[in-house]
């Protein structure tokens, strides 16, 4: 499969004019294949949000290159084309909803692109159905819960038919129910519509459900692998102040104590299975 995102030696500093520019990204190389579901993990200040903002050209590299679907993000002439292909969902659902009516908000991007009415109507309805918000299409966003608002924001992006969606901590402000709804919608989009997903998060359990985890620290990519292999590096993760899922930590501690257990455990089911095998009992 071809790469939808190619990042080559990306450096980025705020205040390049000042004497001591703060370098936030220090040389990042990353390829993301079409259809992948990638989580980007990192502590506050690791540069994960800054990286996300490079993918749809809110920020452009100080040096290096970011290619999205073959488009260079520094190419201002193709900015709208780029943003249509790589949509972005932000943390606060309230601050990204523009209109007082749900369906009009979903249409906002299409209106900007000048999509004709008939097609717009169809795409708005499809997008609302995809995130299970169709029955709320005439509601005001202020009547919705956080999870519902965030799904409306996602609908607004998928109506533009992007090939990739970047979600910047989309569940950080939501309650557990809202988190579940939003993640279910995102996984469905990846599975059924083949949309590439880049999920910026600091929840380990969210990352554990992804196909690939990229861990960032101090502007660099530290780990980049399948979740079970990333989380088995408990030492490295602890060093950069990241937690690992509880079950992984348990397995890791057991292994350290001399038990014969694989540290590549990320789900409760796997953990139960391994413990049963270890203890030689039947559940």
């Amino acid at each position: 499969m071809s790469n939808i995102i190619e990042i080559r030696d990306l450096h980025f500093s705020y205040d390049t004019e000042s004497e001591k520019p703060a370098e936030v990204l220090k040389g990042i190389d990353l390829d993301i294949a079409e259809g992948e579901f990638v989580a980007v993990l990192g502590h506050n200040g690791s540069g994960k949000s800054t990286l996300a903002k490079h993918i749809n050209a809110i920020l452009v590299p100080t040096s290096g290159k970011v290619l999205v679907d073959g488009i260079d993000t520094a190419d201002e002439g193709r900015l709208f084309e780029l943003r249509q292909r790589a949509g972005m969902v932000f943390q606060n659902p309230d601050n990204q909803i523009v209109s007082s009516i749900v369906e009009e908000d979903v249409a906002f991007g299409l209106e900007n692109l000048g999509v004709p009415y008939e097609e717009m109507r169809q795409r708005v309805d499809d997008a609302l159905r995809a995130v299970n918000m169709y029955e709320y299409r005439l509601h005001s966003p202020s009547q919705l819960s956080g999870g519902q608002k965030q799904r409306v924001a996602i609908a607004g992006i998928i109506a533009m038919r992007p090939r990739c969606i970047i979600l910047d901590e989309p569940t950080a402000m939501l309650d557990p129910q809202g988190r579940k709804e939003v993640l279910a919608a995102v996984h469905m989009l990846n599975r059924e519509h083949g949309i590439t997903i880049i999920l910026i998060t600091h929840y380990m359990d969210e990352a554990a459900q992804c196909g690939r985890v990229v861990v960032m620290d101090k502007g660099r990519v530290v780990l980049d692998d399948k979740p079970e292999r990333v989380f088995s590096q408990v030492d490295t993760l602890k060093k950069i102040r990241l937690d690992v899922p509880q079950v992984t930590e348990l397995a890791w501690e057991l292994k350290k104590a001399g038990c014969d257990i694989s540290p590549e455990i990320i789900s409760e089911e796997e953990c139960v299975e391994a413990l049963v095998r270890l203890l030689g009992v039947r559940p």
Binding site: F90, V98, G109, E111, Y117
Partner: peptide
């Protein structure tokens, strides 16, 4: 802060002023 975030979100959805816009309503 909200205004700043909203402006970014609008730009991300290709907002470019009134020229060439179509309307759902």
């Amino acid at each position: 802060r909200r205004a700043d975030e909203l402006a970014t979100a609008m730009e991300c959805r290709c907002y470019n002023g009134g020229d060439g816009r179509t309307r759902l309503r």
